[in-house]
Amino acid sequence: MAHDASQHYHDPPNITNPEHAEHHIVTPLQYGYVYIALLIGTLLTVLAADQNFGIFNPVIALGIACTKAVIVILFFMHVKYQSNLIKLTVICGFFTFIVLITMTLLDYISRAWGLW
């Protein structure tokens, strides 16, 4: 290819975008750290459940579960190293999920408003 390589593509800006250029490989050592973090999280969940924190028990349990889920998504599922398109897709998914949960809960909460 003697001249500018970008003109060989139908959509050059998409191809020459630096975000698409490199492909990151997560190392086994990083996976090892993630694995240990997840096991510690599991241990913490069980230990925390045996303590009486009152209404904070489910909050702590969900907090640990969400932290573990984020770690899995970022590293095991490589989202940390993906393009903005993939990152946005993942965020949109969870955002839509939260919207659906909230709207449905609002319906259940407000049906018998003032009748309890």
Partner: peptide, 10 residues
Amino acid sequence: DIVWLFLFPL
């Protein structure tokens, strides 16, 4: 995996 991470505590 992630589904189970929530199922277990819940």
